[in-house]
């Protein structure tokens, strides 16, 4: 029995909309899930569905409105700023845009070393050894560490970002679309580095992406988000072979066919994602759902266990 490294219970992040007092934007609305040690949980969803907000809330770059985030059984939501800073040693984030995630005025060595300095790890000499070690792991030479970020390509910059996240030996990495800003040829290179590092350092990833093929390649379990809610969570193979939620079905049907002769029905969703500041009543997906029933407009569904390691939030299955 593997113990959950991270347990999220009823996490909510609402943004106050300027102007009126009553209006919130429910970016993350009542999300619960667990991540076991050594696992890779993928989070997929359309842009604007709250994936990144969730990632940033998990690592406390945004303070959660409500809910619990249990890291190794300890609630880290709403700790004092000082305690939060200490906890960040155990969880790190890799950002989406490698061009804005590195300080242009710091040399790469300083960038990678900074977490060690902040967390007061080791002597100067030990830190140097550690920086060289991590740099080697992500494929940077010692000579390159003496340069500035603008002298590197996108893929190299992203590897610097990975090195910075890993240098303090964290347990959990939140990867916020780490490869979506990169060329396809570089994507696999960076993903492979992340995979190798996972083995070497026994890491746990939460991998946020909108690219289903990348998620399929990289993750063990996948959670599908729609309008700030988790609508389906399942094992990778289970989700791809047996999707339950109509939204998941539609997403998967949009994947290119693996073989030209194989017949596949394309489910096309009508309309746009509704405004998250004013979500539809009942099930938030009912406006676009091909299987919409009368009850869907009234009763919001909850995440229910459907089978082994398969949770769905849909009234069709209740």
């Amino acid at each position: 029995m593997v113990s959950p490294l991270l347990e999220v219970k009823h996490l909510k992040k609402y943004f106050n909309l300027k102007g009126s007092r009553a209006d919130y934007l429910k970016a993350v609305d009542d999300i619960s899930f667990t991540v076991n040690e050594g696992e890779v949980l993928g989070i997929v969803g359309e842009s604007g569905c709250g994936k990144s907000t969730m990632g940033k809330t998990l690592i406390q770059l945004l303070t959660p409105t409500e809910g619990e985030i249990l890291l190794n059984g300890e609630n880290i939501a709403n700790l004092s700023p000082k305690k939060v800073r200490e906890k960040r040693r155990d969880m790190q984030i890799i950002f989406q845009d490698p061009f804005s995630s590195l300080n242009p005025r710091m040399k790469v060595y300083k960038i990678i070393e900074e977490p060690l300095v902040n967390f007061k790890i080791g002597t100067k000499e030990e830190r140097k050894q550690r920086v060289y070690e991590v740099a080697k792991q992500v494929g940077l030479t010692q000579k390159q560490l003496d340069r500035f970020p603008h002298e590197f390509s996108g893929g190299q910059r992203q590897r610097i970002g990975i090195a910075r996240a890993l240098v303090s030996n964290p347990k959990l990495i939140i990867a916020d679309e780490p490869v979506s800003a990169l060329d396809v040829s570089i994507q696999s290179q960076v993903l492979n580095i992340m995979k190798d590092l996972k083995k070497e350092m026994n890491l746990t990833y939460i991998f946020i992406s909108h690219d289903l093929s990348v998620v399929h390649h990289f993750c063990d379990r996948i959670g599908v988000m729609y309008l700030g809610k988790l609508v389906e969570v399942a094992d990778k193979h289970e989700l791809f072979s047996n999707p339950k939620h109509p939204y998941t079905k539609a997403l998967l049907s949009a994947l290119p066919k693996s073989h030209p002769s194989r017949k596949k029905e394309r489910i096309v969703l009508r309309g746009d994602v509704p405004n998250p500041a004013n979500p539809p009543s009942g099930c938030t997906f009912h406006t676009r759902c091909p299987n919409c029933m009368d009850i869907c407009t009234v009763t919001p569904p909850t995440l229910k266990r459907m089978g082994e390691k398969h949770d769905v939030s849909c009234l069709l299955y209740e």
């Binding site: 804005s100 995630s101 902040n118 996240a165």
Partner: peptide, 26 residues
């Protein structure tokens, strides 16, 4: 809005350090 300021926070920087090392030089 730049991610490196958020990154500076995520890697355990204090407000003072973020201001002095990441904001002022820029």
């Amino acid at each position: 809005e730049q991610e490196y300021i958020q990154a500076a926070k995520a890697i355990g920087g204090t407000h003072f350090k973020i201001i002095v090392k990441h904001i002022l030089p820029n």
